[in-house]
Amino acid sequence: MLSKQTKEAFLGPLNANNPVLVQILGICSALAVTVQLKPALVMGISVTIIVALSNVVISLIRKSIPMRIRIIVQLVVVAALVTIVSEVLKAFAYDVAMQLSVYIGLIITNCILMGRLEAFAMTNNVKDSLMDGLGNGLGYAMILVIVAFVRELLGSGKLLGFQVIPQWCYDHGYSNCGMMLMPAMALILVGCVIWAHRSINEEKK
């Protein structure tokens, strides 16, 4: 059903060509929103939608964009999409939108978007661009979820706001690792995820 190239555009970014781990794009928000699982999920979904849609829009008009001002055109398209998503979040998920604060607006300058628009959507057809956008967005969301899962579980003993570590553990001397909630641990965790990802991929070769 899907051609090989289309499949590759979708599956590549999920593992071998992951935007966060391999291309090192979109780090800023990946680190900042991962204290809890819920904002991380919302952020991952928002970015996936925006990358996919902006890829489609730019791919549709790619032949009529003058080369010299393409960056500004891309920024305007992305900024318009981000504004829509931000307004929708404020209307339907106000508390999460407040938690994400400036990081929703910062999706505009998220390098994943500019990177994919420049590297893929400007030169490929609409269907491949859509798949590439979805793949990259989900690859990004995946890392967010992994990091947020570890931080919320170890940092506050909860997942999605529900207590998962039972009370008797606390009674027997277990305590939450407060350091996991600090910004610094996000960096160290992503470093460890990169470490694991590289050593696994090396073994495959």
Binding site: I24, M182, P183, A184, M185, A186, L187, I188, V190, G191, C192, I194, W195, R198, S199, E202
Partner: peptide
């Protein structure tokens, strides 16, 4: 360590600096 070289160790360094 080899898989940690480059970007991996940089992340951990930045983490320690942030601490």
């Amino acid at each position: 360590p080899k898989p940690l070289q480059g970007i991996g160790i940089t992340f951990i360094t930045v983490g320690l600096m942030a601490l």
